[in-house]
Amino acid sequence: MTMREKIEEAAARYPDQRSAIMPALLIAQRQHGHLPGPVLEEVADILGVERIWVYELATFYTLFHTEPVGMFHLQLCDNVSCMLRRSEDLLRHLEHVLGIRKGETTPDRLFTLSTVECLGACEMAPVMQVGDDYHGDLDIARIDALLDRLRTEAGRPTGADHAAAASPGE
């Protein structure tokens, strides 16, 4: 299905096209990775709604990104339950091994690191969401293993040889 078809299908669930802006943005973001202005305009056109309404929603909700994010968006929960289980240490570790601060993207555009509010999985705190998946009961070793897996998935050098392989042009 094209993006337009998916959006139109989603819109059919509501009596008012405006309701479909959120589902449409989720669809568009899956397609484009993020939501730059022209994509917002396209969504508004498909639904026949005001452009500003689309822009309002794209900025109100934290899951929408109007700026590009890395291939893997590491979203570490730092709310109370995770904090009590030392998610701060994990954040510090992630910042260290990725060489970026929270809110930033690695130069190879592989990882974007964010902290998020409670993910609703406090039974396995500390938790991090990457893409669609939750990773719980994390510690430093598990984080490292996870990063390696993600790099492999992307066909990039893994953590062990990463430092050596990092080319100056990266």
Partner: peptide
């Protein structure tokens, strides 16, 4: 006109 809106939260 629906030109102005409110962004972020």
């Amino acid at each position: 006109a629906v030109a102005l809106g409110t962004v972020e939260k």
